[in-house]
Design a binder for these strands. Structure first.
Length: 585
RNA sequence: GUGCCCGUAGCUCAAUCGGAUAGAGCACCAGCCUUCUAAGCUGGGGGUUACAGGUUCGAUUCCUGUCGGGCACGCCA
């Protein structure tokens, strides 16, 4: 029997053994020892390709080097045997009783199993969603939300100190357009007829906000609309308004007419939309630590400061009346405007201030989750940080591709024009939160996602969400029928678990922390989804091949100890993805 | 036109930052419920990893080119 107080991390342990063995080979350069899981049982449990890596520098046959490494390796209480295989792989077979230590550990740690100190408590920020509060979240935001939330959970589980942040674009033109849109709808409710611009916000939710204002304040915000169309072409009075210039003119006129009241309208629509967004996300299981206001960057002078700092570094110049940042000096395709000819700062300017602020808040790593259509934006932001003498590599951008909905095998419309897009809320109500969360992270984030609505809805074996949840529910059902004291399973004689399915399952459970670590390192929560499906699959197979509630008490308890451990891991894994682990289905 | 991403089974996708015989699910075919939930299981067929070269012990992965698809190329956000 192996006796050790501490739970062994096999990969770390084996890596240390190799490290020691490598000393005898007198290699002068740094070693990159990677321990990987094997794909085939005949190759053992873990494998290392170090011998092949060293073949070139040592001018020796990899298999010969592997033999030397094995000879030089210290004895280990965990290792059953070591073999040289193939071109020079070193394959490790772990002792079964060493693996079984994990069952005891999982039963004791329960909800905490899977956690590691991989991240060393490093302060890391994940900024995601950050949708303009100008309308309901749509299915594209949903993927960013699900991905970001899952990634943040994974990072936290892997030992990082994670802050989840939503950047609120509460400054700028889009909010003005929304405020104008709502006010125009409000005027219409008061029987004041003004043409509604085609490029204003058309959605029904705008009319609803107008109605709220009307119900609370009646005609309190009705002002002379006559000058609203001042400065617009004569045609606009009769015909359509659809250019940016016309829209901006109307906004300016509205501000003039409303005076102090404009702030009320602006603030009202912002509060409404942000509240709606927050509710939507909360129902989706996505929560944030910080809602960071873009407007606050202006109010606190941080935008002006960031621009001034760039100027001090001689990174700005004036041309055509605008202020430009020399981003081409830092790899961008062209220089970018930070302050427009009309004196307004660009979105880029506040973004520079925002990112500088993030760095100054002490995060050692800052992760931005962006829609893939923003990829061209990366060089200028990193360039600006570099210009400000910050380390641009601390900023990591995770790009999330669009999700395309399919219904009846056909693309479902998600046009943002005319307000007829599919909202996240609609999706959640149609397929449920669990399916939505799971489907969103089933694919690598930087790949297009075909979201099959019919599949997500189907309560059948085709649906991968139910497949995993069903495994959990089955276990709960078995445990309920056993009706014993779960705590007693810690003393089960787990050395009775010698069947092939049991050994595979045990190794699968041991892999859980490694999977989380990999998902954290590669920003790939989809690895968790794949892992869970694999574990569920192994469990279902075990369930069908082996009866758990057998008369022989020790065997029953041993199997239940394994099954209970699986339950913990399924639950913990689903939790990372924000998916429920139901006890009954 | 320029830049970035992608191209893997009929379909949707994996493949542990160059590793061993490229794996799942769906679909298709053949089986399994008087036994802890059949939302399950077992078995089977299915591949020149778009194409052509190159780098090396070894390539789906890295480099070059071609073809095909997506996105981005504003004093918008």
């Amino acid at each position: 029997m192996v006796k050790l107080s501490e739970l062994p991390n096999f990969r770390v342990h084996l890596s240390q053994l190799l490290q020691q063995a490598a000393l005898t080979l007198k290699v002068d350069h740094a070693l990159n020892i990677e321990i990987t899981r094997t794909k085939q049982v005949s190759h053992g449990d873990y494998s290392c390709n170090l011998a092949m890596q060293l073949a070139k520098t040592l001018h020796k046959n990899p298999r010969e080097i592997a033999g030397m490494l094995i000879d030089a390796m210290p004895e280990s209480a965990y290792v059953e045997k070591i073999e040289v295989a193939g071109a020079g792989f070193i394959n490790f077979f772990i002792k079964d009783d060493a693996k079984r230590l994990y069952l005891n550990h999982i039963l004791q740690s329960g909800d905490r199993y899977g956690a590691s100190d991989f991240g060393n408590g490093e302060k890391i920020q994940v900024e995601f969603v950050s949708a303009n509060p100008t309308g309901p979240l749509h299915v594209g935001h949903g993927r960013g939300a699900a991905f970001g939330a899952s990634l943040a959970n994974v990072l936290a589980k892997a030992g990082f100190s994670v802050t989840r942040e939503f950047y609120v674009n509460d400054a700028g033109r889009q909010m003005d357009i929304l405020a104008l849109s709502a006010w125009l709808r409000y005027l219409a409710l008061n029987d004041v007829q003004v043409p509604f611009p085609e490029n204003a916000y058309q959605g029904e939710y705008v009319k609803e906000m107008a109605k709220l204002i009307y119900e609370a304040h009646a005609d309190r915000y009705v002002h002379q609309p006559a000058v609203l169309l001042d400065g617009l072409s004569e045609a606009a009075h009769e015909e359509v308004i659809n250019t940016d210039e016309q829209l901006d003119r109307m906004i300016a006129n509205a501000k003039k007419i409303l005076g102090q009241d404009y702030a009320y309208i602006h603030n009202f629509v912002l509060t409404e939309q942000l509240g709606d967004c927050r509710n939507d996300l909360m129902e989706f299981g996505v929560e944030f630590d910080i809602w960071f206001s873009e407007q606050s960057l202006f109010d606190n002078g941080l935008v002006a400061r960031a621009v001034r700092l760039l100027d001090e570094k001689k990174q700005l110049y004036r041309q055509d009346g605008a202020l430009w940042f020399r981003s081409t000096e830092f790899g961008d395709e062209k220089d970018r405007v930070v302050q427009r000819e009309n004196g307004h700062y660009t979105y880029f300017a506040s973004d520079i201030a925002y990112h500088l602020n993030k760095f100054e808040r002490g995060y050692t790593k800052v992760i931005n989750i962006w829609g893939a259509d923003h990829h061209g934006y990366i060089p200028r932001v990193k360039g600006a940080l570099q210009a400000l003498e910050q380390d641009p590599d601390k900023l990591k951008i995770a790009l999330v591709q669009f999700a395309v909905l399919y219904r009846d095998g056909k693309k479902a419309s998600m046009s943002t024009r005319s307000g007829e897009f599919v909202t996240l809320r609609e999706l959640r109500h149609e397929v449920g939160n669990d399916a939505a969360r799971f489907f969103y992270v089933m694919r690598k984030s930087d790949q297009h996602l075909d979201f099959d609505l019919d599949l997500a809805k189907s309560q059948s074996n085709e649906n991968p969400v139910y497949y995993v949840q069903y495994a959990h529910a089955r276990i709960c059902s078995v445990l309920a029928q056993w009706d014993g004291d779960a705590a007693s399973l810690i003393d089960a004689e787990t050395d009775l678990l010698t069947g092939p399915a049991e050994r595979v399952l045990l190794q699968c459970l041991i892999d859980f922390p490694d999977t989380i670590e990999a998902a954290a390192q590669e920003f790939s929560p989809h690895l968790i989804a794949f892992y869970l499906r694999e574990l569920a699959s192994e469990f279902h197979s075990y369930y069908n091949s082996t009866h758990f509630l057998v008369p022989e008490i020790p065997i029953m308890e041993a199997r239940l100890a394994l099954v209970m451990s699986i339950r913990h891991v399924l639950k913990n894994g689903l939790e990372l993805l924000g998916v429920n682990a139901p006890e009954k289905m």
